[in-house]
Design a protein around this nucleic acid. Sequence first.
DNA 1: ATTACTGTATTAAGCGCTTAATACAATAAT
DNA 2: ATTATTGTATTAAGCGCTTAATACAGTAAT
Lengths: 140, 140
Amino acid sequence: MSWKLDSDRPIYTQLLEILQINIVSGHYPPGSKLKSVRELAMDAGVNPNTMQRAFAELEQQGLIRTERTAGRFVTEDTEMVGKTRETIAGAQLDLFLEKMEQLGFGRQEIVEFVSTRALAQAGRRNSASAGSDTNGGAQA
Amino acid sequence: MSWKLDSDRPIYTQLLEILQINIVSGHYPPGSKLKSVRELAMDAGVNPNTMQRAFAELEQQGLIRTERTAGRFVTEDTEMVGKTRETIAGAQLDLFLEKMEQLGFGRQEIVEFVSTRALAQAGRRNSASAGSDTNGGAQA
DNA sequence: ATTACTGTATTAAGCGCTTAATACAATAAT
DNA sequence: ATTATTGTATTAAGCGCTTAATACAGTAAT
């Protein structure tokens, strides 16, 4: 787990996003049990109260289910997880497009920019499995 | 001018980004005079101190020049402006790619995702001038 | 039954951001 | 010379986020 936190935004918001991503990417499988609030807070280096707050919002979105004393579990509604993944991806794209257009880039330019730079030297890793994986190995 | 501010991040940071974009996109031409701190603060609906703080950081980056009592002016170093534009665009792309990969998307998928959705219904506007403009009408 | 581990709630303190209300020096405009 | 406008600095107050230090209720394990 990464837990890269910056001081520019509320920590509980960032924790929420990280937890979301770990769920919709399949890193936290449907139905699996999550670590306790205290343990995750330790991992992330934050106060348990802060992690608790992140969970409160995460649960409100239906991605996790809480059992009073047993702990928290990832939802088993794989369809919802998948939809959430698409929603987040779409939102990220919209944000990106908005910024690029504000910078004066046209749609055509943006596509070329992304194509050129994204396929160039990639992230170095998984240069083998890449190329024909249409699902990225995520979710159900 | 937009001045869309959210409460999730420091306002002066957001003001800084907006000012940056207006400069590197050519909306604030090189050498042009900017409105006063007080006036811009009014436009944005923030306290003059907050706008002042944004300017302090903006000047530190060299995008503007301050003349004690005459006001602030956009730099005339068009090369720097252009480089800054590319730097911001690259940073935005990197952020986007990172999020998408965390969501489980592969590079190939991302390119297809962007190509499909970015060229689909666009932003509705400038459907006429789009298509062959390789510079977006920005900077020098 | 006792122990350990869940989620949850409360209180107080500290810190950064923001605002409000001024004030001052330097220059441009009249 | 006077007035208006510029950037800039200062002080105090309020607010949200974060942390620390607890505490409690419910359940699983022993």
